[in-house]
């Protein structure tokens, strides 16, 4: 099991944070362009899901799976979007995203008066705590081990 990379988007589509751990394929475009592409795709998936859903959706889109990876998506009611790519066998990734929001984002960004909301996160303590949370979760297992 492995975690590939993570994106955090604000409610306006600004890339707040990007981190990667095990990423083999480079998309061949800059990080900014890639973030825009990712946000655009998620935005379209959201409206696609709302339309095609046979019942009234509550949480809406949860994840999608391809042959090589799974993209998990968590959107808070305030519009903050957490996106994480893992391999296909990882379990309980949604729980990890929720932890990431409540134990790392809220604690080290929202409660930090020097962090501007809706702007890319520069805080070093956030970076290290996030890295720690991902690395100690059972989903993260480095392939080189």
């Amino acid at each position: 099991m492995t975690v590939h990379n993570l994106y955090i988007f604000s409610r306006n589509g600004v890339l707040l944070y990007y981190a990667e751990w095990n990423r083999l394929n480079k998309s061949g475009i800059t990080k900014e362009e890639e973030a825009k592409l990712m946000y655009g795709m998620l935005f379209s998936i959201k409206s696609f899901v709302n339309k095609i859903s046979p019942l009234d959706p509550k949480e809406g889109f949860l994840y999608y799976k391809t042959s090589k990876y799974t993209l998990h998506y968590l959107e808070t009611p305030s519009g903050l979007k957490f996106v994480i790519n893992t391999d296909n066998i990882s379990q309980n990734v949604r729980q990890l995203l929720q932890q990431l929001y409540s134990q790392v984002y809220v604690e080290y960004v929202v409660k930090n008066p020097f962090c501007q909301l809706n702007e890319p996160i520069q805080s070093e303590v956030f970076k290290s705590k996030l890295d720690e949370l991902i690395k100690k979760s059972p989903i993260f297992l480095n392939r080189s081990l």
Partner: peptide, 30 residues
């Protein structure tokens, strides 16, 4: 026709090489 680019972008944004497009998409209702 909206699903078509989603399928293609999902394979382009893949962290792993040689990846297919979306195979399963889950929401809370379907």
């Amino acid at each position: 026709s909206m699903f078509y680019p989603l399928f293609a972008i999902a394979s382009q944004l893949s962290p792993e090489p040689r990846c297919s497009g979306i195979e399963v998409l889950e929401a809370d209702t379907f």
